[in-house]
Amino acid sequence: MSLAVPVWLLVQEQLLGNGVPDCGSSTCFDDFNDEALFELFHLTKPCVAFIADSIRLRIKTATTGREELSVDAQVMVALNYYAHGVFSGVVLDMAGLSNQSERAYLIVDKLSGVIVGMSDQFMSFPETPEAKACVASKIKKISRIPNALGILAAVHFKIVQSPQEKSSVSDANGTDYTSVVSQVTCDSEGNLLSVEKFRLSNGSTFKPETWELPSKEKEVEEGVKEPYRVIGTKGYQLSKYVLTPVTVPVTEGEIQYNKAHKMLDDIMQKTLSTLKRRFRCLLHLGYRQETTLDRNTDIIKACSVLHNISQKFSVPPPNAAGEVELVGPSKQHSKELEVCPEAVKARQKVIYEFFSNVSMETESTGDTDT
């Protein structure tokens, strides 16, 4: 997100003008005061207006069954669902959809696709040299870890089993639900840079350490003398372009490096907590038999785009806490994974140069990753 500053400024200039969104006329959101807006949508009035204007540029009206609804009415219904995972009666009444939840869900599905189409503007992994340097410098400033383009995590989005499924299915991770798991990258400021690689997991099939990085992220190691990296949270395997903690730190340098790594991990935890607290639909994507992976993927991506927009407007998260699960099952692997010796050496070089005054030749690695 921080790499798309020119794009963001251009859109902001087009939509915000002097800082006040121009809706052209009164909208259905005008009927709510600031407190009601935040309660219904977990967003502030300027942020809601910006989102509505951004969507309005892409669609005008959409047929939802028997008649056409205004864009503002559609946005109101979708934002309300994202915020709570259910529809508020007052919102459905204002949209003219009382007792028509099926039509409301169709609106959510449509607008989710529209918002996903805004990803290139509001959510992007660093590609240009300037963008990479900007993200990496901010991460280094707070952690001392150099050349890091983001923080990587595998995130659970819960799909609840129906009562019938619970009685017949036993998940390998000991939970009573299946989840959509996605690979997420954020920067040091809590902006989401990428949300991708969606798949279903029942606790036994998800192994983040076996995932390949996205094509854009894999490019960081090709043809670069001092390659960029990403910070891999729990479950990821150490590689030349994924930095993980030292499993058993021995030296002071390794201890300090692990503390810095934990600091970045905490940023990811806070980012995901904010995302799920603001958009509570992500805490419960529905019953497994009633949803599809494509629909869930669009909702997750749409909420991620809206998260970055709310970041730009400094919208505080709601107080309600939400459950956050970063990685796959806690189940131990049957055998230790092999780690490339060059990857271990690269990590030790970082520890030596930025976290320790002890020479690399005499420093104990204390490493049990292999």
Rank of each mutant, 00 (worst) to 15 (best):
P146D: 07
A148N: 04
I351W: 03
F125H: 02
T244L: 01
R66T: 14
L285Q: 04
G235S: 03
V344Q: 15
V71G: 05
G24T: 11
L243V: 15
D30V: 07
V180F: 01
G117Q: 06
A172I: 10
P316W: 05
A153V: 08
F355E: 01
K234H: 11
W8H: 11
K60Q: 15
V90S: 11
Q269S: 14
K335C: 12
E68T: 15
M118F: 04
E130D: 14
K331W: 06
F125P: 00
I59Y: 10
P21L: 07
G65N: 04
L285A: 05
V242L: 00
K158I: 09
G190W: 00
D298A: 13
Y177G: 05
P227D: 07
A133C: 12
E13I: 11
K45W: 10
A4M: 08
S273F: 01
K197P: 00
D120C: 11
V195A: 02
F29T: 04
S112L: 04
H84C: 10
L200A: 13
D176W: 01
A133Y: 10
K140A: 14
M76F: 06
K331T: 14
E290V: 06
N191A: 08
H333R: 13
V181Q: 11
T271D: 00
V77W: 04
L3V: 11
L293K: 09
S201L: 03
S112Y: 03
E353M: 06
K234C: 10
F38I: 06
A36S: 12
N357M: 13
T61S: 15
V160N: 13
Q256V: 05
S194A: 13
F87R: 04
E68H: 13
F206S: 15
V11D: 09
D265W: 12
A148D: 01
L272A: 01
V242D: 00
K60H: 14
P126Q: 06
L149C: 14
E102S: 15
V339G: 02
D294E: 15
Q183W: 01
S137R: 14
S204R: 09
E68F: 14
A52P: 02
L10G: 09
I107Q: 04
K335N: 10
V358H: 06
K276I: 01
E127T: 12
R280F: 04
V250K: 10
I299A: 00
K345M: 13
G174P: 05
G113N: 11
I145D: 02
A154T: 01
A321F: 07
G89W: 03
Q237L: 15
C303W: 00
N357R: 14
V324A: 04
V220I: 10
L337R: 12
